[in-house]
């Protein structure tokens, strides 16, 4: 099996004693090399926690996460992470943000000047790929949200990570910018051969991007179902309107609603409407 990431019986509890919360319960999942897996689920389902565990920012209470067959211990340069926002360094220009990892490695003696030069060329290439060349000397707060996320992705890609972990990276963007970013990230995944684990609350986004959509359920956080996406590998925006897409979106939304334990109480709404009407009549 050519598994890049292998999650075995992952269990995570926050807090102690009676007030503890089970964020992840017995999560098993294998993610293949160069696969694009998306996670959706109601809030509190543990999708972000799982991503942070893979990134090494949280440790599992029990179970294990292997990358290339080796159990992970803490964060590592092989697993880059893109956050929803506030992760760029506002005091650095776009270019210096992207080269931030190089600044870290510059302190290590085992780096030759050829390595540094190669990294510099790569920074320029990424700038180009992300359409950021014209803002290379700008500061992050001069950029739109979409541009800022491009910088964050370029920065994450600089050291050629084999895995890219994305935690609702487009959650704060408007719908049009988001579409552009979707096609960009699909392009990146093909070009860089990166394994991408992508957490979102947007089902449409999850289907459009993912080869598999993992639906998680809350209380306790667990995997509810795994849905392979039956769309042509080469995606385009019109597919979102195809019957297959709609069908899958409907099925996943149903699963999320069912597991969320939250649903619109139509009976209550109707009763309230009736009451209001009665009061209006009396007046």
């Amino acid at each position: 099996m050519d598994n890049k990431i292998s999650i075995k019986a992952a269990h995570k509890t926050f807090g102690e004693g009676e007030r503890s919360i089970v964020a992840l319960q017995k999560v098993d999942l294998d993610i293949a090399r160069n696969e694009f897996v998306t996670f959706v689920g109601a809030s509190g389902c543990g999708k972000s926690t799982l991503l942070r565990c893979i990134g090494g920012l949280e440790t599992l209470s029990s179970g294990s996460i292997d990358v290339d067959g080796m159990p992970i211990s803490g964060p590592g340069v092989d697993r880059a992470m893109v956050f929803q926002h506030y992760s760029l360094y506002p005091w650095l220009t776009v270019m210096d943000n992207i080269k931030f990892t190089r600044q870290l490695q510059a302190g290590r003696e085992d780096l030759t000047s050829a390595d540094v030069e190669a990294a510099s060329g790569r920074a320029d290439a990424l700038l180009d790929l992300m359409g950021l060349t014209h803002v290379r000397d700008a500061y992050p707060n001069q950029l739109s949200g979409g541009m800022q996320q491009r910088v964050a992705i370029a920065r994450a890609l600089l050291p050629r990570p084999q895995i890219l972990l994305m935690d609702e990276p487009f959650g704060a963007l408007d719908a049009q910018t988001r579409e552009v970013m979707h096609d960009l990230i699909l392009h990146v995944s093909k070009l860089e051969k990166t394994t991408i684990v992508f957490v979102t609350h947007d089902v449409e986004e999850a289907i459009y991007l993912g080869q598999r959509v993992v639906v998680m359920a809350p209380r306790p956080g667990r995997i509810d179902s795994i849905c392979p996406v039956e769309l042509p590998a080469k995606r385009d925006q019109d597919m979102k309107l195809s019957p297959e897409f709609m069908q899958q979106k409907k099925a996943i939304l149903h699963r999320i609603r069912e597991t969320a334990g939250m649903r619109t109480d139509y009976e209550l709404l109707e009763r309230m409407t009736r009451q209001a009407e009665q009061q209006n009549d009396m007046q």
Binding site: G55, G56, L57, P75, G76, V77, R79, A80, M81, F83, Q84, H85, Y86, S87, L88, Y89, P90, W91, F100, T101, Q103, L104, G107, A152, R155, A156, P159, L165
Partner: peptide
């Protein structure tokens, strides 16, 4: 997130203090 981003980029504790926390 500024600190966690540095952690995922492989920054050491000292690097996080001098390159992220202090300038931020």
């Amino acid at each position: 997130t500024q600190i966690e981003a540095a952690q995922t980029m492989g920054a050491s504790r000292r690097e996080i203090i001098s390159l992220v926390i202090v300038p931020s």
